[in-house]
Lab assay of single mutants.
Amino acid sequence: KELVLVLYDYQEKSPREVTVKKGDILTLLNSTNKDWWKVEVDDSQGFIPAAYLKKL
């Protein structure tokens, strides 16, 4: 599985998104959309702007 590093805090703005903190390491589930990547946070899944993430 691929991991990503969160570069900036992000507060979810819709139920399909997730809240993350700078420095979090998350599992990347889908990066086919260049603007929004799907990640797994704890036991939930959701989208975060790709610009907030860096592949490890």
Rank of each mutant, 00 (worst) to 15 (best):
K22G: 05
L7V: 06
T27A: 09
K13E: 07
N30T: 07
K38R: 10
K55I: 12
P49I: 05
N33D: 14
V39E: 00
K13H: 08
V41S: 13
L3D: 02
V41C: 10
L7N: 00
T19S: 14
S14T: 11
K54W: 10
D35R: 14
K21H: 10
P15S: 11
K21Q: 08
V4P: 00
K21G: 04
I48Y: 02
S14K: 07
D9L: 03
S14G: 13
A50T: 05
L3S: 06
T19N: 08
K54Y: 11
N33E: 09
G46Y: 15
Q45N: 09
Y10W: 08
L26W: 05
F47Y: 14
W36A: 03
D24L: 09
A51T: 12
E17I: 07
V6D: 00
S31L: 04
K21S: 08
L29V: 11
V6G: 00
S31N: 07
I25F: 04
L28K: 00
N33K: 06
T27L: 13
Y52T: 05
T32Y: 09
L29R: 03
G46V: 15
E40P: 01
Q11C: 12
L7R: 04
L56R: 02
L53V: 12
K55H: 07
S31P: 04
D43P: 03
E2C: 15
L56N: 01
I48F: 02
L53E: 00
V20Q: 01
L28I: 04
K38G: 05
L56G: 02
L5G: 01
D24T: 12
E17P: 09
D43V: 07
V18K: 06
E2D: 11
E2N: 11
K54F: 11
V6W: 02
K55E: 05
V39F: 03
E2F: 12
K55A: 06
K21R: 13
G23D: 05
Y8I: 08
D43C: 13
D35L: 14
F47P: 03
K38Q: 14
W37R: 01
W36E: 04
Q11E: 13
E12G: 15
Y8Q: 13
T19R: 08
K21M: 08
Q45T: 13
P15G: 11
Y8M: 13
V18G: 03
D24V: 07
D9P: 05
K54A: 10
V18Q: 04
Y10K: 01
G23T: 02
F47W: 15
T27N: 09
V20T: 04
Q11M: 12
L56D: 02
D24Y: 08
P49K: 05
D24H: 06
V41M: 10
K22A: 13
V41H: 10
L28S: 00
A51R: 15
T19H: 07
V4C: 10
F47N: 03
D9S: 09
K38D: 02
R16N: 14
K34V: 10
L5M: 10
L7P: 00
K54S: 09
L29P: 00
E12D: 07
L53N: 00
V6S: 02
W36M: 06
K38N: 06
L3Q: 10
S14F: 09
R16Y: 13
L56A: 03
G46K: 08
L28E: 00
Y52A: 09
E12N: 12
L53R: 00
L3K: 12
V41K: 15
L7A: 03
Y10D: 01
L56F: 09
L53F: 02
V39G: 01
V18E: 01
D9N: 08
T32Q: 12
V20F: 06
D43F: 10
R16M: 12
Y8F: 13
T27E: 06
L29S: 03
I48M: 13
R16D: 11
D9C: 05
L56T: 04
D42F: 12
D24K: 07
K54G: 04
V4T: 02
Q45Y: 14
V4Q: 00
V20P: 00
L53W: 02
R16A: 11
Y52Q: 03
G46E: 10
Y10A: 02
K13F: 10
L56V: 09
A51Q: 11
Y8L: 09
D35V: 14
K22L: 04
L5A: 04
Y52V: 12
K55N: 05
K55Q: 07
N30R: 06
D43Y: 09
P49N: 04
E12A: 15
K22M: 07
S44V: 15
D42K: 14
V20I: 05
G46W: 14
I48C: 14
V39C: 06
I48D: 03
L29Q: 03
V41T: 15
K38E: 15
Y10H: 03
V20H: 03
A50Q: 05
I25G: 00
Q45G: 06
L28D: 00
V6F: 01
W37K: 00
R16H: 12
W37P: 00
K38M: 15
I25Y: 04
V18M: 14
E40G: 09
W36P: 00
S31I: 05
A50H: 03
K54L: 13
Q11S: 12
V4M: 02
L53A: 09
E2G: 11
V39S: 01
E2S: 12
N33G: 08
D43T: 11
D35G: 09
Q45M: 10
A50Y: 03
G23L: 02
K38F: 15
E17L: 08
D35E: 12
L26Y: 05
P15V: 08
K1I: 12
Q11L: 11
Y52L: 10
S44R: 15
W37I: 02
D9K: 03
P49M: 05
Y10S: 01
I25K: 05
S31F: 06
Y8N: 09
W36F: 07
G23Q: 02
Y8H: 13
Y10N: 01
V41A: 10
N33V: 05
V39I: 08
D24E: 11
W37S: 01
E17C: 09
T19C: 07
A50G: 04
N33L: 08
K55M: 09
S31H: 09
D42H: 13
L56Y: 08
Y52H: 08
P49G: 03
N33T: 05
E12C: 15
W37G: 00
K22Y: 04
K54H: 10
A50E: 03
K54E: 10
G46Q: 10
V4G: 03
A51E: 10
F47D: 04
D43N: 14
L53T: 04
S14I: 06
N30W: 07
L26G: 08
Q11N: 13
G23V: 02
I25V: 11
L29H: 03
I48T: 03
I25R: 04
S31R: 07
K21Y: 11
K22W: 04
V18R: 06
W37T: 00
K1G: 09
S14H: 11
T32K: 11
F47S: 03
S14V: 06
G23F: 04
K21A: 07
Y52I: 14
N33W: 07
F47L: 07
I25N: 01
I25A: 02
Q45C: 13
W37D: 00
N30K: 06
I25L: 06
T19Q: 06
N30D: 15
L56I: 13
D9Y: 04
W37F: 04
L5Y: 09
R16W: 15
D43Q: 13
E12R: 15
L3A: 05
L56S: 02
D9A: 06
N30S: 13
G23R: 02
G23N: 05
S14W: 11
K22E: 06
I48H: 01
V6L: 02
D35H: 15
Q11G: 07
N30A: 09
N33Q: 09
S44Q: 15
L7H: 01
T32G: 08
I48E: 01
V20D: 00
K13Q: 13
I25Q: 03
Q45P: 09
T32R: 11
Y8T: 07
K38I: 14
L56Q: 04
K13V: 08
E2H: 11
Q11P: 05
V20E: 01
I48V: 15
